[in-house]
Simulated scan of single mutants.
Amino acid sequence: MGYDELIAEGLTTPFEGWDFGVFRGRLTEKADALPWSYERLVRQRLPQVGSLLDLGTGGGELLASLAPLPPRTAATEGYEPNLPIARRRLEPMGVEVAEVGDDDALPFADGSFELVVDRHESYDPQEVRRVLTRDGVFVTQQVGGRDLEEVNQALGAPPHTYRDWDLSAAAAELTDAGFEITWQDEARVPAAFHDIGALVLFLRITSWQVPDFEPDRYAHRLRALHEEMERGHPLEVTYHRFALLAART
């Protein structure tokens, strides 16, 4: 496809939940590149708890894959289009899906959950601590503030406003909130966009990456990237991820 067709495809391709299968072969990364597995971190703890809260469940894809789930399992989601998707998937499994609009106002009573998990969702440390039981555990994998900064550089877009969000910042916040960090790790993983349509689709669904993104606004840079990709030179980028386990003290 030509440039115009790829741009149109990126703007119109259906996308729901957080199923990134649509990027297969178009946004590539080294398989199992992270030195940890978020899914394994969560699975290891599920048999030990009777209550679980998943923050920012998306379409519920990952949470559903972790079944069997604890007797009381709940999830939150703040992106309105994902709510009906998550509820269709999770409510038949007995999971309550709560809509949230504010990280510091979780709709649950104090001490409601033994385990709170969070993959790539923002959170308020004090609020997470409030809903955890005594000795409860928080497991999170976060997108760091240097994530895919090569995209912003290639487009001539401003860097992330949260550029300093990294493992040390998150660990300090949680410690200040009354948690003990029991494990932590951070990594940068190489990846590549192979066509301009995949990049446009990605920027469409991750509005925080380049908040003012519109193809017309960045047309000159997009065309230059497209020409490079057509010559077999993908846009090389780097994922920034970190993860930690924190026990409520």
Rank of each mutant, 00 (worst) to 15 (best):
G2I: 00
D4M: 01
L11S: 05
T13I: 11
T13S: 09
F15S: 00
W18R: 05
G21V: 07
R24C: 12
R24Y: 08
L27V: 07
L27M: 06
L27C: 05
T28L: 08
T28F: 04
T28M: 08
P35V: 13
W36G: 15
E39Y: 12
V42L: 13
V42S: 11
R43C: 10
Q44F: 06
R45T: 03
R45C: 13
P47G: 09
S51I: 13
L53E: 06
A64F: 06
S65V: 03
A67Y: 03
A67Q: 13
P71N: 10
T73L: 15
T73E: 07
T76R: 03
G78V: 02
E80D: 10
P81F: 04
P81W: 02
N82M: 06
L83I: 15
P84M: 03
P84C: 03
I85Q: 13
A86S: 02
R88T: 14
R89H: 01
E91Q: 15
E91F: 14
G94N: 11
V100E: 12
D103I: 00
D103M: 05
D104F: 12
F113I: 12
V116F: 11
V117T: 13
R119N: 13
H120T: 01
H120L: 08
S122Q: 02
P125L: 03
P125G: 10
T133K: 14
T133Q: 15
Q141C: 11
V143Q: 02
V143C: 09
G145R: 06
E150W: 05
E150Q: 08
N152D: 02
N152K: 13
A154M: 01
L155W: 05
A157L: 07
Y162T: 01
R163H: 05
D166Y: 07
D166N: 15
D176A: 11
A177K: 06
I181G: 08
A187R: 07
P190W: 03
F193R: 02
D195V: 01
D195K: 07
I196K: 10
G197L: 01
A198Q: 01
A198W: 00
L199A: 12
L199I: 09
L201G: 05
F202E: 04
F202Y: 14
L203P: 04
I205Y: 06
T206V: 14
S207Q: 14
V210Q: 04
F213K: 07
E214P: 12
D216K: 05
L225I: 08
L225Q: 12
H226T: 00
E227F: 10
E228F: 10
E228P: 00
G232C: 14
L235R: 03
L235D: 07
V237Q: 04
T238G: 08
R241E: 09
F242D: 05
L245P: 14
A247Y: 03
A247G: 09
A247F: 00
R248V: 09
T249Q: 13
